[in-house]
Structure formats: structure tokens, C-alpha cells
Design a protein around this nucleic acid. Sequence first.
DNA 1: CTGAAAGCGCTTACAG
DNA 2: CTGAAAGCGCTTACAG
Lengths: 370, 370
Amino acid sequence: MRSNDESTPEPRATPARAIPARAEATAVAGMPGVRVTAAMVAARAGVSTATVSLVANGKTEGRVSAENIARVTAAIEELGYVVDGIGSSLARGGSNLVILAAPDVANPFFAKVIGGVRAALGSDYQLLLAVSDAGQLPTPEEVRALMSLRPAGLLVDAPDAAFLDRLHSTAPVVLLDAPGVEHYAPSVNLDVGHGARELAKHLAALGHVRVAYLDSTGGTATFRVRREAFLAQAAASGMEVPDGAFASTPIDVGAAAAAFAGAWPAWQRSGITAVVCCTDTHAYGVLQEARVAGVAIPGRLAVAGFDDLPYSATSSPALTSVHLPAAALGEQAGRALKELMRGRVLAEPQRTLASTLIERASTTGQAGNL
Amino acid sequence: MRSNDESTPEPRATPARAIPARAEATAVAGMPGVRVTAAMVAARAGVSTATVSLVANGKTEGRVSAENIARVTAAIEELGYVVDGIGSSLARGGSNLVILAAPDVANPFFAKVIGGVRAALGSDYQLLLAVSDAGQLPTPEEVRALMSLRPAGLLVDAPDAAFLDRLHSTAPVVLLDAPGVEHYAPSVNLDVGHGARELAKHLAALGHVRVAYLDSTGGTATFRVRREAFLAQAAASGMEVPDGAFASTPIDVGAAAAAFAGAWPAWQRSGITAVVCCTDTHAYGVLQEARVAGVAIPGRLAVAGFDDLPYSATSSPALTSVHLPAAALGEQAGRALKELMRGRVLAEPQRTLASTLIERASTTGQAGNL
DNA sequence: CTGAAAGCGCTTACAG
DNA sequence: CTGAAAGCGCTTACAG
């Protein structure tokens, strides 16, 4: 669980008699340096560590004299003192860390989510990402280890029930994009079903009757929602997704391209005129392979995706896609967590953000547009 | 610096007389639960906390009787005890956290770097990503706050001198992709210059004489290296990059496409037959706009990039690109840091990984390939 | 306004 | 093999 041969030379605190100014300035990057403690600051300022703590944390109002504030401030500055997070966390009973666990950090969509979280959290909390291998949430063991840091709060993106069952958090938790498991904790969800239905209506209105669906292999619950909502509305709108018109691949352009290449001859024979992809990434693969095969988009085949990634606005043809409000997702989750961390009760513990269909040339363009 | 109104209700440790089994199992996600301490385990097992610590950390050899190991193990299991990272870190003088600071987390390239780091670090250390806004390293203030967590080590990707000057780390540091600042700390670099020169030779061998260069606006030091190495070899190989044949945009497909659209008429007039892009992302923009404008790739214009992103292998045409060993970069940096954290001295503190040119259809394909 | 002291949860010499 | 005790660096009642 933790390193058994932690032979790192631990810097022993130097005796407080002669405190050199800028002790930390002697630390060379990569070399252990001298750690400046509150006791050293106290010695230099001629006060107690209690006073140092008060000043360092800005809790001086009506508690520390102007004289002492000045002395301590000067000593802090001279020694380069930074409050130790470990000692502080232990004394306070918790840290100011917020941990964000997500299966898919390296994703342009997720970058926006992170931006939103940061904006909401502000500088009171330290945001750290728990990373694991691509497409995987951290294991429960990893999360246990993280919980032992006593984070002030936890944000979990796209969790499944198994993960949440094994997560016994003592800190407030907010879930992001957690369809089907909202009851575990306050959550912010995406109404991706709405966009999926809009997409089905859009295709039906364009006269499509037989459509294919390119799904994700494995993946999180959102893909089930996307598929089911689309299929339900497709049926309601009089469209058919024939049995042979399903395929699934990992979220990877090449894999999607290959799957499309393999499936297209049969799809073509069965009269498919549109393919809906569960992510824009899948759709890029279809666009690419269609170009190679000389399939006119959208003239011969309409293509659409989900996520509205940056590239989709400028791809050729531009890709019709269900837009998801990533920044708002992060921002509202961050906001909710902040409330919980302050001990407040959420007025609205379950939130859902709308998705919207962005219609572009891959479904609406001139026929024959390559 | 830290929250001033941390009004979170702090769970007081319950008196150790009646310890219910599975205390933590009563914790509902999002609700503060009971924290199980070593003292509770000790009480239940009828031993001292010292013994609990020994057992929990697997340091029992020749120090704890089989009898007591069994009792403590059972109590740990029954109560769901997890060693508290805060208390442990304070006692040990440091945490087992490794913090990775990077400007560009949401990048497929970087996902591989992270994978490499994780593989090298193993389970002895907790890897956490310090995130900031897109394209930015965390500020020195943010890093200070992180340092106060007493990480066991620090990994910094693509730092500049200003960042390192203000980073007074007391923990071992390893730099990744840090051309020009290697002297600050042990580092693992990418010899991107080699790939850039290979690319210049490749284009020259294909008969190109006048080429354009699409650079990144701002960005990290690697872009300077890419440009300079390419230009030097281009000149040496008898190619010319005319004054008007430079452009730069952010790392964004749409921006690159727009820049190319604006520049192409003049480039065409001046006899440009190839454009080198400082990232594959820029190159995607060029490919896309070229398609719209009916510019045959590579017949009329050869296109190449750097990074060899996943999409480049399957784009249409597939993109010639300078491949960078992302996973190896992370892996070697992680390995080096692990050595340092164990108190060892690096045999080879400066390492450089080779880059290779991957030739694909965007430069070598049949002329007229759209 | 101030400081001595207790306590946060753990680890590690130390004495037995 | 075992436990009492000191100590990690801080914060916070508490008494003055």
C-alpha cells in the first residue's frame, strides 16, 4: 500500500536558535532543502506559534496586535514560510483538496469540464486529478488511498454502480454525468437523451427511413442513454434501424473507420441512408472512410455524432452533432460541491443540463458534397 | 490561501469503548461518516497502536507475533480501517504523492505520457495531476500550495525558466520535455530536432524547393526547437522558406484551417509546394481546408506535421508526421523520479529520446489524391 | 491581545 | 515480541 523502503533522507528540522533568512532559497531544484516551520517563524518574530498560525491564516481580526502582525508578516516573508499542508490538515481534521476522478482525462471535452470545475471552486480548494489508465476510473483501492488524504470533497465523472458501491467517502461527493446512479449522491447530469431525440427527428424530417447506429464498445452509461433515446425516437418518427445496422467499436477514429468499411456494403444493400455515431470520434472515422470509398456525404449517406468536439465545426463536411455543455457541467458540479463542503444543503441536489442538436453539413449539406 | 470559513462539521473521533464492526459501512456517499483510527483497531485487537501500525504497513517481520498479526488483521478487516494518509505523512516526514504538473493534460499525446509515468511509478506512489487552465502550467502559487502537501516527488512537463526559477522544491524533481532548461533538474527530453531534420531531408529528396511553415502561437520551447531544426536542415538541403511563408496559430484545427485559407493564394503564387506544420493538429486544419479549396494533397501540396497523433495514421490522406515516444517519455521520467525518491543518484540525469519520421501519403502518396 | 497546552493520527526509536 | 512515549507541524479552545 505504501512504500516499504522509503529511504529518502528526511530533512531534520534545524534547531531554532540561528534561523538564516531565506532558508528555502538555498534549496536547489531536485535537492532536499530546509523546511521552514511555524516554530522558526515564531522564534524569529518573538511570538508563539499560535500567533504565527493566526497571522498565516489571516485570522487576526481582534486577536493579534498590529505590532505582532507586522513582526510575523516580516518573519514569514524573510524565511519564506509556507503553512505545511500536512500538519494543517491533521489539526483541522481535513485538507482543502478536491479530487476529481474521471475515466477520460485526455479528451477535449473533459478539458472544458475541468475548466468549469476550477472556475467554480476558486482558490480555496486545490483541485487534483486522480488518473488511471485510459477509459478507466481509478480502482476502489486507488480511491481508498486518495480518501486517506482526507479530501474536502470528491467529484466523480461517469461512475458506475460498482464503483460507487465500493466508495465509502467521508467527504461530500458530487457526481457528474451519472445517469442511472443519481441516487448515490448529488449529481449533475446531461440530458443527452433530448439531443438524441432531436437528432432522430432531424433525420426523419430529412426523409431518412433506414439508419445505422455506430455504438461504443464498453464505455460508460451515457452511451446506453444515447442509443436508447435515439432508437426510441427513431421508431416513433417512423425510422427503422435494421438488425444488421448496428456496429460498435472503441472510441477511436481508425477502429470506427475500419468498422464502417466492413459494414458499408451490407448497409448500402439494405438501404441505409444515414449513420448515427455515439461520439464525434466515431463519426470522424466514418467521414474519412466514406471519403476513401467515394460515398458522398450527405448525398449518399448522412452522418452525425455526439459531443460536438472542436474539430466537428470545421471538418469537411462539418459534422452534425449533439452538443453537450461541458463547461457548465463542471461548473455546476463544482458549485454544488462547494456548497456541500461548506456544510450547506443543496436546494437542488439533482440537476440536468440540456443538450442541443447542432445541425451541420454532414446531414444538411448539398448532396454530393465530398 | 486556505478556506477561511471551513465550517464543515468535523467528525469527532468516537470514544474507543464500543467499536461497532464496519463502522465505515454506515457512511453514505456524500455524508460524513465515522473515521476508523488505529486506536480503534488497537482497542478491538487488544494491542497497542504501534503494533497496528506495524501490521498495517507490513513491517511485521521479526517484530510481531503471528497471533497478533492475525488479531490485528482481523480487526482491520472488521472495522474497515485504512491508514490515514495525513497522520502517516506527518509522522514519516513526507507523503507518497507524486505530482505531475503539465500545461496540456487534455491531449492524446499526454495521455500516453501519463500511462508511461504510471507504469514506472507502480503502486508505491499516488500520482496526481495538477491542472490549470488549458495550455498553462500551474502558477508558482499553486505549486507552492502543492508543495505544502509534501509530495514525494514532482514531475514537470514543458516548464520554462521562469516557472523553475520560482519553484523551490524540497522534493526530487524530474523534468519532461524541457529543452533549454535541463540544468535545473534531471530531465528526459525528446530529440525532436532529429525528426525535424529527417522531415526536411525527406521533402528535399522528394524535390520540394519552396516550403511553408505553420507554427504555434505562444506555446512551449519544443516549438522553437522544431522550427529551428527544420529551417536549418531545410537550408542545408537546398530548400527555401520564403519570408511570406510563415504563419502561426493556436493549436486548433479551425484556426489552422483559417490561416491556411488566408495564406494559400500567396503561397501558391510564390511556388510553395509543401507546408510543414508544428503539430498534427495544425496539419489537420490544412488538410481540411485544402480539401475544401480543391488543393490536391500531396500532388499540388505536400503536408506534414509533428506528434503523430492517433488520427494521423488514418486521416485521408494519412499524415506524414514526426513521431515522439510519449509513453517512453513518461516511463523514463517516472523511473528516474523513483530512483531519486529512493535517495539514489541518477547514473544518467539527462536523457534524450529519439524522434522518428513516419512517412505517409500526405507527402508520398500519388499526386492528385484528394 | 497572548501563549502554554492539548490534540489531530500516525510512526519509530527506545526500553523492556 | 511488545507497548509507552515522543514527535511530526499545525490549529484551537482555554486561561490569563
